[in-house]
Amino acid sequence: MKSKKNIYIIILLFLTLTTFIILGTYYYISSKQENLLNSIYNTTHINIVKTTQNLIKDKQNTTLAIALALAKNDSLYKFMQTQDYEKLDYKKISAEIKEHTKYKDVWIQIVDKNGKSIYRSWTDLKGDNLLFRKDLKNTLTNQNVSTSISVALFNLTLKARTPIFDYNNNFLGALEVITHFNSISKDLKENNIDCLVITDKKYRKILKYPYTNIFIDDYYIANKNANLDLVNYVKNNNVEKYINIPNFIVENGYLISNFILYDKNNEKLAYIINFMD
Score class of each variant (00 low, 15 high):
Thr44Tyr: 00
Lys137Ile: 09
Ala71Arg: 03
Tyr8Phe: 12
Lys268Cys: 08
Asp187Asn: 11
Ile198Tyr: 08
Phe20Gln: 07
Phe20Trp: 15
Tyr203Lys: 10
Asn47Phe: 01
Gly24Asn: 11
Leu269Val: 11
Asp112Tyr: 04
Tyr8Asp: 04
Ala95Pro: 02
Leu64Gln: 03
Val106Ser: 00
Asp187Thr: 03
Asp58Gln: 13
Asp217Val: 03
Phe171Ala: 06
Thr16Arg: 05
Val49Asn: 04
Tyr90Leu: 07
Asn54Ser: 13
Phe215Gly: 01
Gln53Phe: 09
Leu55Met: 10
Gln81Tyr: 08
Asp200Arg: 10
Tyr219Arg: 07
Glu86Thr: 05
Leu36Tyr: 12
Asp84Thr: 12
Leu70Arg: 01
Lys59His: 14
Leu230Gly: 05
Phe248Gln: 01
Asp194Ile: 10
His100Gly: 00
Lys87Ile: 04
Ser31Gly: 14
Tyr103Gln: 01
Lys78Ala: 15
Leu158Glu: 15
Val234Phe: 13
Gly127Cys: 04
Asp105Ala: 01
Ile260Lys: 14
His180Cys: 09
Asn252Gly: 02
Met80Gly: 11
Ser185Ile: 12
Asn6His: 10
Phe132Trp: 05
Gln81Met: 11
Pro163Trp: 08
Phe79Tyr: 15
Trp107Ser: 09
Asp112Lys: 07
Ser148Val: 14
Gln60Phe: 02
Lys92Tyr: 06
Asn42Lys: 02
Ile56Ser: 08
Phe165Ile: 14
Thr19Arg: 10
Val49Asp: 03
Trp122Arg: 08
Thr43Arg: 03
Ala95Asn: 11
Val145Gln: 11
Leu125Met: 11
Val231Leu: 07
Val49Ile: 15
Leu153Tyr: 15
Trp107Phe: 09
Met1Gln: 10
Asn42His: 03
Phe132Glu: 07
Val111Lys: 01
Asn35Met: 12
Leu140Tyr: 08
Trp107Met: 12
Thr43Tyr: 02
Thr162Phe: 12
Ile272Pro: 14
Leu207Pro: 08
Ile149Ala: 11
Pro246Lys: 11
Arg161Asp: 15
Phe275Gln: 02
Ile193Cys: 01
Val177Asp: 07
Tyr8Cys: 07
Leu36Asp: 08
Glu86Ala: 10
Lys113Tyr: 13
Lys50Asp: 09
Glu251Thr: 04
Ile11His: 10
Tyr27Ala: 03
Leu228Asp: 01
Leu261Lys: 04
Ala95His: 07
Thr123Ile: 13
Asp218Asn: 14
Asp135Gln: 13
Ile198Gln: 09
Gly253Ser: 09
Asn144Pro: 00
Leu15Val: 14
Ser257Ile: 06
Tyr242Thr: 02
Leu76Lys: 05
Gln143Arg: 13
Asn114Asp: 10
Thr212Cys: 06
Asp229Ala: 04
Ser150Ile: 15
Tyr262Arg: 05
